[in-house]
Each structure stands twice: as structure tokens, then as C-alpha cells.
Design a protein around this nucleic acid. Structure first.
Lengths: 305, 305
DNA sequence: ACAAAAGTGTTAAACTTACACCCATGC
DNA sequence: GCATGGGTGTAAGTTTAACACTTTTGT
């Protein structure tokens, strides 16, 4: 809503104002689309549930620059749309996804990040129920594929004094295509935290891009960190990766995958209990006791406010 | 770091690529600069500590558009700088502040938000120790002033069903100049949360802009919400509002101000204890028992990683 | 003396952690 | 029967919330 009514003086100012006189960047939205999907190539065992993994959607660029490199889906903002609308449109165009958790988590705007020129990218975290969307395979123009994603931090340097601190880590990012149709992508990003003058700064630099286009290795790592940070201990966004009906074990595996550690079942269930509601449905046909399906309990999600 | 070496084919593509063929927005950074400062106009009492308040820095626009309206400090990105660098530069130019917590919290890019044309704004949360910086008074070009800031949410509508929910609130934003040189600014923003199709969307709309320029009423409210969210229960960013040496009561007041509720002293101290270190200094000259000064304990801030 | 704030101790309730245990199913 | 995951109980340890209380200063 815009309630602005300019004065006559201001009107004439605006009439002669030429925004084109000032240099402007191109503006883009890039999406880190995550889902939790089953992994291929597992031995068949009627008892065991198939293992699932956190997956990231990448597309192989069909055009310059970085032709044939894997990259995050994304595209340029058009006049008349907000950046969020750009993200939604691109997500729909490139993946067919209409509903997703979609949240901007960072801006990437260092000069030189795109060889075409000055381009500011808005990075979005997109969480979808992977089961609902079939990825479009390799058309001529481009190819989309889910990659298993994992990362690990290695401490390189840690120096804490009374009033200043510096911590440097190397973050190893690993993306693998389970179907084996694309070689594994291994990237290394350097994370440097400095505390100085009462404030902290954090900086990420690509050490090895692993063949990923642009500065996307860095964006992907930051997306993983943002996902883990936002998911927290019982953060609600993990639900956005699940279908509307899910088993508690499935939800627990999602938390474990994102946090990179395992949880005790009994404790997890107690903690999550207020946020879920039992349904009548039961998941049968597995080689063990069938699991009850649950759904979100919106009452507790929105209870306080 | 950019390790990119284009192929000959790609090189020729880049040579003929004209980024100017596509429409581009202007890109700006706007800063919500917060600090905690004493309020004016309090009765003199040698015993009582002067009350402090959360304050926001606004500047009165000296030029079109929205001439003479109060607005957030900010400015346009220049070629060769990142958006963060823009924010740092503008903060220095407009307030003289060299060190601050500075973090982008949202993007504002709805078409029509600026009468000059297509302008995408990156909103930054800036936290400074207000005591260290004297605000430049009213020069001819523009005038900067600290406003006491507070807001309140009023529930307007709440409808929770099994698989969908809608919550609408009115947020009353109040900015007052304690010195009385500017009239109080009262703005109203409507917050609408919708849950539908397993995902949530949130939207903010200005109902009354209170005379604030552009969509800054909305940006200011979102900044307050971001500050409260990031400060959390014992979030570290509250320290960024404090000087390097501070009293525990001062720190407690900061938490109380941001969270909008009072805390029990004994409990607060126990919770915050690991994050602070006692110094030898003592704050004397007050009409009651003098307080010990503390500083951040960086060991616990950076202990885990 | 005393008002104001600095700072500590005590208790009950709530939550977390770890582990042990039983249940239901398909083959 | 039995492997596998579904699901529950319980006791120890830790954290939180509430409140009462003592200490130290300047006038």
C-alpha cells in the first residue's frame, strides 16, 4: 500500500528525475532447494527402511557463462516484481514447484562474482517435500538433478584473547549424485570469524569451487549453515521438508540429517509431541510394526500470538 | 576469490554480452541504527539511575522525494562495492560510526515502494554503543536525531483450522523525540500470517505511515521484530549495544528493553554469568552500592567451535 | 538513617538426558 | 522365531522461576 501524494514541487522533481543516470546492477534470485529423499543403490531388505538423505537441487547450465557447470537454479528479477516473486517464478519455471518454504537468507554482491558484470544475488532457502515433485530430466536446454549434500567443518586456527578473537575453519562441502550419472562435487570454503572492536565479522571465501558455477559453492555452504541455524533444536521449518502426513521417525530422521547428529527417540518424541497431532492413518507393509501418521498441530504453532 | 578461467568460446560470448540490454533496478542499503541511551526530561534524584530507552536513528530528508520527512539513513550501492560495503560507507558518512554490528535482515522490493522508480532496498540491522558517538545535529543538508522506539502488537483475527491458519495483527509503532523538537511519529502496520498448503507466508502492509518516508514504517517494524528475534533469550547480539565495559544491571536493562518484559535479577545473572568476565573496575559516584564492571567473555562466546 | 541498587541463597517445579524395556509386523 | 523399527517408563541430573534476603554506597 502506498499512501504517498507528492507536493507540486516534488512532482516536478520526479518528472525530471532520471534513474538511468546512475549505474545500476542486475539483480537475481538464486534458490538452494532442499528436500529429504531416499538414496539409491541400497541393498534390498524387507525389514530395513530405506535410508534417506538431505538433497539439494542443482541444474546443469546449458548456456554461457559456466556452460555445463552445475549451479543453483535462479534467474534475474524483472520489472514489476519483487525479489520474492522472482524466486517463486523461477522455482516454478525450473522445477515445477508451486508450494515451498521460501526465505531469503543472504546477499551475495562482491564485485567480480559474475563474469558478465555487476550482479547482486539474493539467495533463498527453499524447502520442499521432495516426494511431491518429479524433477524434470535432461532436456536440451538444461538438466536438473538432486545431489546428496553434506558438509564438515575443520578448525584451522583459533586464537582467543581478552578483547579480540579469530577463528578460521575450512568447510568441506560434498555433493554426490547417487545415480552415478554425475561425478561427486567436492568444494572447500574458508570461514573466517573475527572479533575486534566489540563486534564480530564473518567472511567466507572459496578455496576450491569443485566445478560449481559462479560463487555458488559459497552460497550452498551458507545455505546449509542457514538451514541448520534456522532448524535449531525443534525449529518449525523442518516440517516444511515433510509431507502433510508423516511418521515421527521420519521427522526425527529429518532433524538428525539437518543437525548432523543422532537423537534419542523417546526424548525427541516428548519434545515434538506438542507440535504434532495423531491421525487415524497407519503406514503398513513394512517388515516391522506399522507406524502411525501425524500432522502438524497448528494450534501450538500459532498458539502464543 | 575467483578462480574462473573462461574457455575461448565463453570469452567471445562475454565480450559481446551487454548487461545493459536488460532492465535493472537501482539497489540501496537502508540501516536501522539502534542504541540504548538515556532519556531526557527525568526528575533529578541522586539515588535513582536515569532511565534508558531503546533508540532508533532517523534523518530528516533534505531533498526530494519525501523532503522534510523522517527516514532511515541509507543510500545507493556504487559499482565496485558489495551491499555490506555500501551499508558501512553510508553509516560512516551519515553518522560517523566506524564500528557496529551490521547485518542484513530483509529485502524490500515491492514495485512502487519508491516514487523515483524501481529500487530494491537491503535493510540492515545496525547496533552501536550510543554513548560513543555524538549525533551530528541539524546541518542544512540533513538532520539526524535519536528517537525512542516502541511497538505493540494487537491481535485482529485468528483462525486456526486443521490444515490452514490465518493470524492478522496490527502493529503500532511509536517513535518519540525526547527533546520535544520533533512531534511523535505513530505508524500502524498490518501483519498477516497465512498457513496453507503446508507452508507459511507472512506479509506486512502499511496502514498509517505516520509521516515516515517511503515504506520505512514497515522496514522499521521489521527491524524491531528482527532485533527481538535475534536477541532471543541470551542472544549475543545484545552485547553489541553495550560499551566494552558494562554493569550487569545495564546489560539486564538492555535485554528487558529489547524483549519488552522485565527479568528477575538473580536468574538473569546466573544465566548470563558464563558470557561475562569480572573486571577490577567499579562504577562509583551513584547514590547506592557501586557496581562492578564486566566485559564479554570471548572464551564462552567462541568456546564450542 | 535510608533509599536505591548490587548481589546472593533457597526451594519447588520443569525440563533434559540416558537407558531399559515392551510391542507389532512380515517373512 | 526374529530382526527391525514403533513406542513407553523411569530415575538422575540439570535448568528455570519465584522469592527472600544481605550488602554497600552518597547524602
Amino acid at each position: 500500500m502506498n499512501r504517498y501524494t507528492p507536493s507540486p514541487e516534488e512532482k516536478s522533481y520526479l518528472e525530471t528525475y532520471d534513474i538511468g543516470l546512475f549505474p545500476r546492477p542486475s539483480v537475481a534470485a538464486d534458490m538452494a532447494v532442499f528436500s529429504i529423499l531416499g538414496m539409491d543403490g541400497q541393498e534390498e531388505n524387507y525389514r530395513k527402511d530405506p535410508r534417506k538423505s538431505l538433497k539439494l537441487l542443482l541444474i546443469r547450465r546449458g548456456s554461457h557463462p559456466y556452460k555445463d557447470c552445475w549451479a543453483l537454479p535462479g534467474g534475474f528479477c524483472r520489472p514489476g516484481e519483487s525479489v520474492l516473486e522472482t524466486a517463486r517464478r523461477e522455482l516454478l519455471e525450473e522445477t515445477g514447484v508451486t508450494d515451498a518454504y521460501l526465505n531469503p537468507f543472504s546477499i551475495f554482491s562482491e564485485p567480480g562474482r559474475d563474469p558478465r558484470g555487476w550482479i547482486v544475488s539474493h539467495a533463498f532457502l527453499a524447502l520442499i517435500d521432495g516426494g511431491r515433485y518429479a524433477v524434470r530430466g535432461g532436456t536440451d536446454a538444461w538438466e536438473a538433478r538432486w545431489f546428496c549434500i553434506s558438509f564438515e567443518k575443520r578448525l584451522l586456527e583459533k586464537e582467543i584473547r581478552d578483547t579480540s578473537a579469530r577463528i578460521i575453519c575450512a568447510c568441506d562441502l560434498c555433493l554426490t549424485d547417487e545415480e552415478g550419472k554425475a561425478p561427486a562435487i567436492k568444494a572447500v570454503i574458508r570461514e573466517q570469524k573475527d572479533f575486534w572492536n566489540h563486534h564480530e565479522t564473518v567472511q567466507y571465501d572459496i578455496v576450491e569451487d569443485g566445478g560449481l558455477a559462479f560463487d555458488h559453492a559459497k552460497i550452498i555452504l551458507c545455505a546449509c549453515l542457514a538451514l541448520r541455524r534456522e532448524a535449531g533444536d525443534t525449529g518449525r521449518i523442518v516440517f516444511d521438508l515433510m509431507p502433510d502426513r508423516f511418521t515421527l521417525t521420519g521427522l526425527q530422521r529429518a532433524y538428525e540429517t539437518i543437525q548432523g547428529k543422532s537423537l534419542l527417540t523417546a526424548n525427541f518424541r516428548r519434545k515434538i509431541a506438542p507440535f504434532v497431532t495423531e491421525t487415524e492413518e497407519i503406514l503398513e507393509g513394512v517388515g516391522h510394526r506399522p507406524a502411525r501418521l501425524f500432522r502438524r498441530n497448528l494450534e501450538t504453532f500459532y498458539g502464543e500470538e
